[in-house]
């Protein structure tokens, strides 16, 4: 008469369980890899956009340095002349379509795509042609990544005697 015991074939069951655990570990490992990998190009794009936006902010400071009158006029019109009703800020509107204010620049790592950017100014205080404070905000976008650089600029003009 043949008798069977419950321990028969236990090793097979244990090894199958172990194998299953290892497979689960492997699958979760590959999944975590695929999650991490797409972040790398995004980090590059972020760094690229940060550096680009800083440069475009420099452009904006240059613009304010060279042609401040339109800003002063807009400040006067918005804050003193017609503080709440008028959206027409005068000659500053000429700048709105300027390539320095908004435009596109080729991605140096991928010539088939462009980064787009917009720059806005906010004049906080001004003592015309002597000392001004303004906020320059540059937003740059590339491949779905958006970065913003906001710089508070204190400008001091001195006459070169």
């Amino acid at each position: 008469m043949r008798r069977t015991t419950p321990r028969h074939g236990m090793a097979l069951v244990i090894s199958l369980v172990l194998a299953m655990a290892l497979l689960i570990f492997g699958v979760s490992f590959t999944r975590s890899l695929s999650d991490v990998k797409p972040q790398n190009p995004q980090l590059l794009v972020r760094a690229q956009l940060d550096v680009l936006a800083e440069g475009l902010t420099n452009y904006a400071v240059l613009k304010f340095k060279e042609l401040p009158s339109d800003f002063y006029y807009a400040y006067w019109k918005a804050n003193i002349a017609t503080p709440t009703t008028s959206r027409d800020l005068g000659p500053i509107s000429v700048f709105q379509s300027d390539v320095l204010m908004r435009g596109e620049i080729q991605d140096p790592n991928d010539p088939t795509r462009n980064a787009s950017y917009t720059t806005t100014y906010e004049v906080l205080s001004q003592k015309k042609y002597t000392a001004d404070t303004l906020v320059i905000r540059t937003v740059a976008e590339l491949a779905g990544v958006v970065r913003e650089v906001k710089r508070i600029v204190h400008v001091r003009r001195e006459r070169d005697l």
């Binding site: 550096v51 475009l56 452009y59 140096p108 790592n109």
Partner: peptide, 12 residues
């Protein structure tokens, strides 16, 4: 890897 930026002359 490449990056682009701009430097401007704002002080004389």
């Amino acid at each position: 890897i490449r990056m682009t930026t701009f430097l401007t002359r704002v002080t004389e």
